[in-house]
Design a protein around this nucleic acid. Structure first.
Lengths: 339, 339
DNA sequence: GTGAAAGCGCTAACAT
DNA sequence: ATGTTAGCGCTTTCAC
């Protein structure tokens, strides 16, 4: 990296000292207007920009927000990211992404690096928390951590109630007269990372069934290995298609899986929703554009992202921010034509 | 931020000097195995992690890659990001995202910040280049810049030939016997940012028409304002539906727009592909799962992301990397059932 | 209102 | 094989 213009260059050009320039940059009021103007002009002329590392070093503050996720391409995460981006712009913060790629060692390494390496001032994590020992350290060090989609006592979290979502989806199916309802969901997510999202949705499913006097058994939960379109297709072809009397599916795994199921069912000459009702989860943009349009449970992803940033930023506004924030959004049923 | 354990703490604990610890961290071979082991153990015990800012400051290297895009949620960008993430993991680099939110001043500010503020060692930009004056500075300063999806002489770029893509799409439509083909594309992207992606695709469209002796006129290009599903729907409802004799559409604007068009057309009792053939662009994951499955032009997004990172990293392997890299992938026709 | 001096945590010569 | 010294670019007392 070539040498760049530093604060000293600016100082020399104006005929003041680095301190003065620094004060101007930091809006210190005890600088005369005359000097301030000259300094500002020199900064402009020389294309001076403060060195981020040097600043972080002395201020012990990086002005960056870390975002951690296993992967960033799940479509629901786009909505989260969208909210985050919009909220961060205009503030002096930028953000740095860490994809842990579903690897436990990588995840642990990243959680350590963030905590101890001072890469960022605060961490927003998508559905993942540090392993227990590290988590204790986070708490002990009072490192600002906000977790989206995962509820851990003592941690800031931004949630959308998955139990209610599962309940609403199932109840709607029941009220539409469906009698033989199955739920598609990953059964057990990577225990180490710990996700209770799916579990809660399934609990809502179960409760709704019971509340309406309908039979529930574990077999009603069909397992998928992942969350993408392909999983829905595989799921239909390998198990759903052979269930006799099946008339409804709640894709707790999300809209892409629901869409995959619909796709496979239609290929199988099954009419949606007449023969089979399908309800998704998330209300992704695409949900409204398939045929038939997908009935689903909406989570306010963008709002959730915004809220996460706001909690994060609140740590810098007042230093004495010690309360734990827990924001819970309510999922909404979006009725279209697949049920 | 609380004080953390520093290199000195480690040194003191072991009874050596900071230099020694530093050498261990940096794998300097001239350290005795005995000392190395003791230092490593102390690092472990104390949970020491090098301060990123301090390191960047002295090494003049941040070990971070900046990624810039207007927004990160276009679905094709997910594929790019996926490739980037996978390629970066395992290297000592992390990456920082800058969303410019379609704002010219924000974009310029970010381009300046990256160049002068030393936030990152290299910039991978999605389809955007700095304004002319700044671009000159980038080149003058030899700041490593790789641009995806935008071909600018003298800059590293990773491309997928949009002219060929447009040509292939159109030619396929023609060979399937379509006679009255329209192209849907944003006509003029933000001139300041400068995107020629769409323009090239449209040129391919035009050339294919001409090569096959078919009439081309500007009216055959239908303008959209954005790239999402909704745009396709609007486009169909406001103009496509009234075009008499229309039998094919090339959605140069991308798969989501194609899907939006199909959705709206189906609502209008138009049969796809019998009455209307629709071909998309990108081959997003969802393309295979709509009904009918979408015929489209595939761009190897993940590969493109990987390649971009590799070019970026090459700047660190050899310092004397002065040649400009220009990688051009070839788009492929993916035949499904919408044509 | 501005400057001098010290130091943030680390690394890179240069010694020894 | 390890320690001494200086310095990366900036901010922050504390003087004046």
């Amino acid at each position: 990296m070539a040498r760049r213009v530093t604060i000293k260059d600016v100082a020399k050009k104006v005929g003041v000292t680095a301190t003065t320039v620094s004060m101007v940059i930091n809006n210190n009021p005890s600088i005369s207007t005359r000097t301030r103007d000259k300094v500002l002009k020199a900064i402009e002329d020389l294309n001076y920009y403060p060195n981020h590392a040097a600043r972080s070093l002395v201020k012990r503050k990086t002005n960056t927000i870390a975002i951690l996720a296993e992967f960033f391409y799940p479509l629901f995460y786009q909505q989260l990211l969208d909210g985050i981006e919009h909220r961060v712009i205009g503030s002096p913060y930028s953000f740095i992404h860490f994809a842990t790629l579903a690897s436990k060692p990588i995840r642990e390494k990243i959680f350590r690096e963030i905590l101890y390496g001072r890469v960022a001032d605060v961490l927003i994590s998508f559905n993942r928390v540090p392993p227990q020992r590290l988590l204790t350290e986070y708490i002990k060090e009072k490192y600002p951590l906000v977790v989206i989609e995962h509820d851990v006592p003592g941690l800031n979290s931004v949630l959308c109630d998955n139990f209610i979502g599962g309940y609403k989806a199932t109840e709607f199916l029941i009220k539409q007269g469906r009698k033989n309802i199955y739920c598609v969901s990953p059964r057990r997510i990577d225990a180490a990372g710990g996700s209770d999202v799916q579990i809660k949705r399934v609990e809502g499913f179960k409760k709704a069934l019971e509340d309406h006097g309908m039979d529930f058994s574990e077999e009603r939960i069909i397992e998928t290995t992942h969350f993408y379109f392909e999983a829905g297709k595989e799921c239909y072809n390998s198990v759903l298609k052979d269930i006799k009397g099946l008339d409804a599916v709640f894709a707790a795994a999300g809209d892409p899986v629901a869409i995959g199921i619909i796709h496979a069912a239609q290929n199988d000459k099954v009419m949606i929703p007449d023969d089979l009702a399908v309800i998704g989860y998330d209300d992704l943009e695409v949900a409204a554009f398939i045929n038939p349009p997908l009935t689903t449970i909406m989570q306010p992803g963008k709002q959730m992202g915004i809220k996460a940033v706001e909690i994060a930023l609140s740590y810098f506004d007042d230093d004495i921010n010690s309360n734990v924030h827990k924001i819970v959004f309510e999922p909404e049923l979006v009725i279209r034509e697949s049920v």
